[in-house]
Design a binder for these strands. Structure first.
Lengths: 337, 337
DNA sequence: TCCTGTATGACACCGCTTGACATATCGATG
DNA sequence: CATCGATATGTCAAGCGGTGTCATACAGGA
């Protein structure tokens, strides 16, 4: 009881060959129902757990996949991990969550180490590792299947899952315009994240379509964190003719703008509308709750895992976003002149 | 180059016995410096990566540990994971982050599966898995070392790392009292999290010491999430004689109170002080930024991992908390009567 | 009767560690 | 100086717990 049962014990108990147990274990086709039942009973009785190590060593699949990430947003990573998880669980696949530093010159090596040492069957890359050349090269050389979540460079060589950042930004900008705003500030995202450019693109496209001239001074740099949102907020609200609405490329920065506005005693959302992007927990938590774009992180990860597990051909899947309207975007109130 | 090198290749390349390479690999004492250098050079040249699987199978340590959690706070888990990570990395130890559901009757089984299948060397339990009987029993039976982060039941049988929840709550309550408040509401945490009780205890102790009578109607139930904070906020602010300050057992609930206050147009922090607990990103993000207790999650996890890796005797370590003062707690302003 | 599909078994092998032994060198000890 | 113990390396075989390959056996259809 205390000693751990191995496949031979099971075979003995069931009175069959070791190989047969192995067949049952792996769902091999040529096994009679009788036999399967008998073996499974023996396994249950002995509380048999196949050793992953032994399996790997003998050249089989490891039933393990790795999620490689380098993202400093807790909420984002939590969702991504959970998405991968939920899919893995269904097939009893083990998930190794592996943080890396894309700026470290040894990333390629680390990834190679991970793959060869743990013998994972496949890899999921989350942004921005999706566009880390050394990692991509290592993975190619290793000849291991991988799928990328929200990659930037969309070369057709690998499967990927993503949302339409440009369209989403366009949607939001249009929404703001429809509320009656004409001067709309935009805060860009971190330059190493590809989505940033797309979001800016969508903002400009919506402006264009509405016949509103693009003003470069209404676009501020940002890095996806609260502090850069604060900085951008201060920049905008110090202008002689500040925008009546600010659209930040993610929720954290939007929260920063909100903080600045509160600090300056600006009436929200009357005197200033603020929109976010991502729909993290922050969006609901902050005051006023953020009108934002819901990025389906969980689904993105879930789908990526699905594709990886299914194997097969290269697959690109776009997932839908939604604009979630809360209280932070409203029609501008004219100052009583 | 493309074929993966094994220990025999290394031995051949270095012109030594396989056994010697193994000795180097495992830091065996009787190896000369010359030899070690030679072998290591060969390993580097061949880009040799010892197979973890083979190692495990032959009875050695796996150099893998698992972090088992069931916590729905992204920020908390992010910090915990990172803390474990940073320590593991130093020793080249692989970390398996494994979510479970403490309410699932099969948790014990799942944990047993994890341990026997992956052959991890040790386990870190984060709250509330720290107090999940089936898991604890499984681990005991498996005879595998584990350490607990912020456990409730503090039986001396296993190592643990924690903070002084009661003292922290006491500190905060005292801080609020010192600001001039006498009617202080408290929002309890989730009942399955042991820290909840301790925090309530600290609140009462501080009240006692200050000679303020404990009023049960000033204590509301909560579940550590934003919504329960909103509910509690509404409860308090609907009272005929509402508290002038509210101390929530975590930041999320404090944010909920803030939202209610904003909604009702209550002046913050003048008419209502709000304090949180944990010092998550939320605390800085919200308006006004929360005065809160900094819980050293990263350090907790780092230390837990340290203890696990070090092995040795049972060890209980208390880590210091700090009260971080931001803007959400201020002296009450008397209403102009 | 021969062949093909189904069902089971025997056995080597994956890459590494470990233990039992065999040597060999080197200083210290009596 | 002979001897002994500590240090340093090698040989060999066994084994960890599975899976792949190949062989085998029996069934029914052509």
């Amino acid at each position: 009881m205390s000693e751990r049962a191995n496949i031979r014990d099971v075979a003995a108990k069931a009175g069959v060959a070791v190989k047969t147990v192995s067949r049952v274990l792996n769902g091999h086709p040529y096994v009679s129902n009788d036999m399967r039942d008998r073996v499974e009973a023996a396994m249950r009785e002995l509380d048999f757990r196949p050793s992953v190590a032994a399996r790997i060593l003998s050249g089989a699949k490891s039933n393990q996949i790795a999620l490689i990430y380098d993202n400093h947003s807790p909420y984002y990573m939590f969702q991504i991990q959970n998405g991968c998880w939920s899919r893995c669980q269904k097939d009893g696949i083990r998930l190794l969550a592996q943080p890396v530093d894309v700026a470290d010159p040894r990333v390629g090596d680390q990834v190679r180490g991970l793959v060869t040492e743990t013998a994972v069957d496949g890899i999921i890359l989350s942004s921005p590792v999706t566009d880390c050349e050394p990692v991509l090269r290592a993975l190619d050389a290793l000849d291991i299947p991988f799928v990328r979540i929200s990659p930037g460079t969309n070369h057709a060589l690998t499967s990927s899952v993503f949302m339409d950042d440009a369209q989403a930004a366009d949607d939001m900008t249009t929404h703001i315009i429809n509320m009656g705003h004409r001067r709309i500030g935009f805060i860009k995202g971190h330059p190493n994240h590809h989505g940033s450019e797309d979001r800016l693109f969508g903002y400009r496209r919506a402006l264009d379509r509405a016949g509103i001239a693009y003003e470069p001074q209404l676009v501020a740099d940002g890095e996806f964190d609260f502090d850069s949102g604060v900085a951008a907020g201060n920049y905008f609200l110090s202008m002689a003719n500040p925008p009546t609405a600010i659209f930040a490329a993610n929720d954290d920065m939007a929260a920063g703008v909100l903080a600045v506005a509160h600090d300056r005693g600006i009436d929200l959302p009357g005197a200033l509308s603020v929109a976010g992007f991502d729909d993290t927990t922050l969006a609901r938590t902050v005051w006023p709750p953020l009108t934002t774009i819901h990025q389906p992180m969980f689904d993105l990860a879930h789908t990526a895992t699905e594709i990886l597990i299914a194997g097969g051909d290269i697959n690109h899947r776009r997932l839908p976003h939604t604009l979630v309207e809360r209280a932070s975007v409203a029609p501008p109130v004219r100052k009583p002149a």
